[in-house]
Amino acid sequence: MSLAQQIITISVVVFGTVLTRFIPFLLFPPGKTTPPYVQYLGSVLPLAVLGLLVVYCLKDVTLLAGNHGIPEFIGIAVVAGLHLWKGQMLLSIAAGTITYMMLVQFIF
């Protein structure tokens, strides 16, 4: 690929990314009243999409081979358990991540 072609390719990726981020704001500008259905979506989608994000992080885990996702499962259990118990965001994240790192580096 020539430099010009590389620049075009990168620009297209930038354009596509910007498009997905701006479309809702262009379709529903603040001046106009947003349709009730879209308002409803705006109120419920965040809750649903956070679930999607958690699953997205685990998309490369294979349950039937390798370490069967056991480090991920234990790591998430540590994060969730600590967070439900103590409610300290950084503590839950740090403890879960360190647990996961030790598991994949020394055990699995």
Partner: peptide, 20 residues
Amino acid sequence: ALFLTLMVNARHLFYGISML
């Protein structure tokens, strides 16, 4: 490249609607 970008980043649409 454009098609792939739109597919991978489609989730941003949900973020946008949520952040209006």
